[in-house]
Design a binder for these strands. Sequence first.
DNA 1: GTCTATACGACGATAGAC
DNA 2: GTCTATCGTCGTATAGAC
Lengths: 204, 204
Amino acid sequence: MSPRVDEQNQQIRDRRKQQLLAAGAKVFGERGYAGTKISDIVGEAELSHGLIYHYFSSKEDIYIELAKTAFMTSYETIRRAVQSSGSPYERLKAMTEGIFATPRESGHFFLIALQTNTSKTVPEEALAISREYSAKTLDLLKDLFQEGQKLGEFIQEDPMGQALMYSSLLNGVVFTRLTYPSLERFPQIGQILRMFTDTRFVKE
Amino acid sequence: MSPRVDEQNQQIRDRRKQQLLAAGAKVFGERGYAGTKISDIVGEAELSHGLIYHYFSSKEDIYIELAKTAFMTSYETIRRAVQSSGSPYERLKAMTEGIFATPRESGHFFLIALQTNTSKTVPEEALAISREYSAKTLDLLKDLFQEGQKLGEFIQEDPMGQALMYSSLLNGVVFTRLTYPSLERFPQIGQILRMFTDTRFVKE
DNA sequence: GTCTATACGACGATAGAC
DNA sequence: GTCTATCGTCGTATAGAC
């Protein structure tokens, strides 16, 4: 085969794989690992039943790839915000605003992450990825809170406790937004920041 | 049969049903609706495969009964706290402390509630129960915040928004505690209250 | 009241034609 | 590269013995 044809084939393969991953994210998110049938995924992707096994070796394989995307993307979002410029308070504010400005599609990845941490039916490897990135994410947040405390912007509490509280709050609020998709003015970012900010520190 | 025997049989039936419900709560919580097999439940309860159908008409039936317990118990806990005596701040504090003093077992019911709201594989009726009780719970919380605002104890923000934020925060924190069961001093109740309390209001 | 055996359908994965 | 047909297994629910 000519290089020209190889290249076209590769494009088709890439496109199909993306189709299947997008369909998988939606269906795994909505129905969970055990509740998702191969026929659900290929049905959503509008491809035939057998074809999925030319792109993934198993149902577990697809889920693991999606879990990787979910945790790595979330980690990267937070890492970029924490390591950007500005005061700790400004970075926390920008990060929080950024998280709630994400498109609707990311809800599926949030649900996949949630299931990975709560369901014993999920592939082991996905849980390992979650553990790894969750620890790294908490460390980043802990450093941010520590820095803000030194500057007097944040209240003086155990920084890891603050990191856990912030991450809990994000999870809870994202969950509420998924449950009530019509909510418009929720959450108030200022109120989230209020929980961690020193009252003597004047907010912009 | 004599009444004596009837009574004994009824006791056995009640006990078996409780065994199966307890086993179901654990396994449904850990594995989700679709990921739970009848054999998982009877295995956990140490009863034979066929027996479960003498107590429940189907897998859906068991799940619905458990979902009812989950949502009704949660609603009742909050209703009692909101309608007790004391200032709004005191009631919010007591409620929050009470929620995080609950036994480990209730984690399974939390996970069942979570799945009911996020998984499309769950019996329809369970979702209907969730909707009903969630609305009633939010209304109770809204009234509590409204009352506290009139007294100047809570910050002046849309009371339903406060109710949603409080409920989000609870969900997030409970989830974090399930993910990191070894956490001892988490959460700090004072910090949760701080989010809703007027700074001019002196906390006890 | 409790158990084992089984019917019946569904699902993950593979084979092989085009 | 894509599809249809099929294998083997597993899971819900029922039947019937004890």
